[in-house]
Design a protein around this nucleic acid. Structure first.
Lengths: 189, 189
DNA sequence: TCGGTAGCGTAACGGCTGTTACGTAACGGC
DNA sequence: GCCGTTACGTAACAGCCGTTACGCTACCGA
């Protein structure tokens, strides 16, 4: 009935298929199977496969943004930074799905100008956000603040990739300790 | 004439195609075009597409290992560590190709048990190597040495990913400064 | 000189894909 | 009760893919 709800439901099926079979394994028939319908319904709610993919990614990004916005208050800027960082690594099923989709789209962006442009925007926005949070966490921000923030992002993406590719080798507690270890290095233990 | 030479030539074509069109865009016909032949020759030298891919990846890994082995002597363990780290990020065309292939195979390993097993072996071997190099770089190795080495690997993979996805945003000099910045954090400026 | 074999281009095959046209059943306004 | 529209399943279509069978050419030992 409700179009938006149907579309979100189909997007969830997309996440599931991509998570299980990769972006290569994402076919309209597989999406139909995961959503418990046929390709007819998918075709009815999305102009083409690209629109389906785009919607699935956008909804995922919106959920991620909502999670970060929903973070409560913290005792210190450092705690807030830590909490935001923890949203970027696969600590639970939702974040694992999030990181997985992100990684696939990142690789796809390499050969797709449209995806690349959007990735660059989001990436730089992410760096700016972390730069601000990191600045707040310092009593006296260092001169190489921006480079430190950039490395923080790179570390996060590396950890996310490790957690996505080999969840068994990078369980949530290890990821948390890894983030904390880097924070200790940056801000002092 | 020489089978191994022909195979390496075809593997180079595989790298080129994957770099330009992604793993999805890797078709035997595209490999043929890149190598200046038809699919007939490709089929003649490789049993199937999987054998071609495997060979291309193995040759790439061998080249990477050879590069690291070819690194000369250094004044300090820190310099040696720094040089090895610089082999892991896309500082030139060869390393960019290397990182690109690595990233694609990493994502492919997510849904392929065989690739996953090989990735885990290589990943842990890489961590052990860097742990050793990092230990040598310390006068007194810290208690969290292993975690620091793990984060070093994650940072490297994150930087590699950034350099692969957006080479313009992560030119070689930025990558070098990023690695050096982290080394300063780890070992002191 | 001749037969066999390696090297490789050509082409056809079946399978899978996204897209689209078609059919149908439910439903809501008049 | 009729008709248009929405919602969707079905199925056909063309295109691309990996694989493989076939055919030709060049070479090489006898």
């Amino acid at each position: 009935m409700d179009h938006d709800e149907r579309r979100e439901q189909l997007s969830a099926a997309v996440w599931h298929v991509v998570s299980e079979h990769g972006l290569d394994g994402l076919t309209l028939r597989a999406v139909g199977d995961a959503a418990g319908c046929t390709t007819g319904r998918v075709a009815h709610y999305f102009r083409d496969k690209n629109a389906l993919l785009t919607h699935a990614r956008d909804v995922m990004h919106r959920r991620m943004a909502a999670r970060i916005d929903a973070l409560g208050d913290f005792d210190s800027p450092r705690d807030r930074l830590r909490a935001v960082l923890q949203e970027g690594v696969p600590l639970d099923e939702e974040r694992r799905l999030n990181s997985t989709i992100w990684a696939y789209f990142l690789m796809a962006a390499r050969t797709d100008p449209v995806l690349l442009a959007e990735h660059v925007v989001r990436h730089e926005s992410w760096i700016r956000r972390l730069t601000g949070l990191l600045r707040d966490a310092y009593a006296v921000p260092p001169d190489d603040l921006e480079l430190r923030a950039r490395n923080l992002v790179a570390l996060l993406e590396g950890l996310a990739l490790c957690g996505v590719a080999t969840p068994d080798l990078y369980p949530p507690d290890l990821l948390v300790r890894a983030v904390d270890n880097h924070l200790d290095l940056l801000l002092g233990a």
